[in-house]
Design a protein around this nucleic acid. Structure first.
Lengths: 347, 347
DNA sequence: TTTAGCACTCAGTAACATCGAGTGCTAACA
DNA sequence: TGTTAGCACTCGATGTTACTGAGTGCTAAA
């Protein structure tokens, strides 16, 4: 077990290192207000803390640097709560006072806020709204050969796709089909659309002509293909400001990782509604072994909608980032909740 | 004037440097097949070429490096035409064989193709279709308090925006208004929408109730706000592979430049339908002083729709890039043309 | 006019000394 | 017995010097 003094020293060292990015020496610590021991004492404690695996040296006569275990301990037990400055809080508030009435915009805006208020890269996953239901389906012919299909959900989300119409399909057929679909599918949760289509509806449609069948296939391809979850990334260049990314090679591997949307999406998705901190090697992905990822979820009532995250070096301002993520995830949930209430009752 | 021999030597030097990124020495040149002079002769010529400003030295005893003037001359007079490998050509073809029927997708795809086939960053501006006309306007109520407005053009482009409805406006009013708008605005070119709305239509609407007026204001804000032209960027990380961008500082300034969409858009827009090469300091923007930008336009008939561009270090494979841009811009124009024909006739 | 030859330049590298921030350890102190 | 002063030691960083070699410019001969 760690003594009070060790806890204090470890905390001060990590705080200092997070701030300065430089190995911390015993003398520097002994000079801190909070600490009233001589550098020699500190040195002894440091040696112990290193032996226990919380600190590391970059070379035999260097100051100490937190190990990943050190960060982990810091995050779990040591970190002092961060009070966001007024300016930051009002910056967040302002971002939400705009007439935002689309999920997409709120999410985009939030990503920007997160990266603007930190020196890290923000990643937001979602929103995946399980309660999203089909509001309306529409086909608008553009010519004899093409049309655009539009799908509107009760959350105001609009999905659209243009497609060419094979000659053998008449546009009136399409129209009829859309009418049928609208009747049958109104209010169906989007995530069940696919299934519902494949089971009931395709059966129903097949009772009509062959042309229907073909038209249906087209429509399905156009509108109901599995859509990957959206990823919003903000402040990609922030990473370049971190001294740990002076090495182009690191930057490259991290950037190309971020492009791998599927992988990121998988990484972000998380169960609990608590804030989760993943430090360095705790990350499954190699390219992130020098990074920490902090994730929080936003939700609609009990249902989780998505994840917001910040990606930075392991030397991260954990405390600040956690406060910020917490604030933002609440603010997002709140916003969505208020809409949804209206949407439900207002019909 | 330059002698034949000087032309040859300059060409070989620049070709070599583009390939190797290393200063080129006289000995290396004299060993090339095409060149049958001794290194001493080459040295003399090099000294002359340097005096004329086509070459530079990095230090007094280093090999030569092309100056910007050298590149300019190379691009204008020296470059040998590049034959794209079969594989590249078929790669481009394949990208266009998909069932692409939306401008956006074609453009996105093209940006990807460009960056995949080069080690540079691709930027595509547009499409700005002057012939785009309003096809249909729609308001779909989501609740008593909100609705989504959808605008569809004859090119299959869909624009949408959710908005909250103030209590004093009844949704049936909105509906009526949309009907009027649809009648009056059908077929109006999108770029004239704004004007038309402000002149004729608002007059017309004002003849109705006050509520109409308010609803109209809302709708206008929601749908017809000036939309900035879209920018598609591909292969941002490609820049990191270039040895001239080993310096993080350069990368950062370039990246933050690319984020300035308005500026980039302004830079890319270009008049002629020829391929335009801008080398180093010829660029107005400071952050691009070590870069070259090569732009080509794609069009619909005589009307230019937008610009495709590649951004890389001044040491660029000009020849290859020009061939590629030319191929792609043709391919894009062709594709759009074929749709548009259909769209026009098919009503 | 071309080229061989040679003196010269300078980035890059390696070897070596110096400096100083930091450590670990020991012995003295409260 | 816990704390601290003192000191020898370590090692990255920095600076000096010397050496190497790819490259040049110039001169003189072919």
């Amino acid at each position: 077990m760690l003594t009070e003094r060790q806890l204090l020293i470890l905390q001060v060292i990590i705080d200092d290192f997070i701030d300065s990015a430089q190995p911390v020496g015993s003398r520097a610590i002994s000079k801190k207000e909070k600490v009233s021991y001589s550098s020699a004492t500190i040195r002894n404690e440091m040696a112990d803390l290193e032996e226990m695996g919380f600190l590391e040296k970059t070379h035999s006569s260097s100051g100490r640097v937190p190990s990943e275990k050190g960060y982990r301990f810091y995050v779990d037990h040591l970190m002092s709560p961060f009070h966001l400055p007024r300016s930051d809080i009002s910056f967040v508030q302002e971002a939400f006072t705009n007439q935002l009435v689309e999920f997409e915009r709120v999410v985009q805006q939030s990503a920007r806020v997160l990266s603007d208020l930190t020196n890290y890269t923000s990643i937001i996953l979602g929103p995946e709204v399980y309660e999203t239901r089909l509001k309306q389906l529409q086909i608008i012919p553009l010519s004899n050969y093409s049309a655009v299909a539009i799908l509107v959900t009760n959350t105001g989300h609009v999905e659209h796709r243009s497609f060419t119409i094979p000659v053998e399909i008449h546009s009136s057929d399409l129209e009829k089909m859309v009418n049928i679909l609208n009747k049958k599918l109104y209010g169906v949760p989007i995530i069940h659309l696919h299934r519902k289509l494949n089971s009931e509806i395709s059966e129903l449609l097949r009772q009509h002509t062959d042309e229907f069948d073909k038209a249906y296939k087209y429509l399905q391809a156009a509108l109901f293909e599995e859509q990957p979850v959206k990823l919003y990334v903000g402040g990609k260049t922030n990473i370049l400001m971190q001294p740990e990314f002076k090495d182009i090679e690191k930057v490259r591997s991290l950037y190309s990782m971020i492009e791998e949307e599927a992988e990121i999406a998988h990484l972000l998705r998380h169960e609990s509604d608590e804030i989760k901190v993943t430090i360095g090697q705790e990350n499954e992905v190699k390219a992130m072994k020098d990074c920490s990822l902090i994730t929080a979820s936003y939700s609609l009532g009990d249902e989780q909608m998505g994840t917001i995250a910040l990606l930075g070096p392991t030397r991260m301002e954990y405390s600040k980032v956690i406060s910020l993520l917490s604030l933002l995830s609440n603010r997002m949930s709140q916003t969505f909740h208020s809409w949804y209430q209206n949407g439900e009752n207002g019909e």
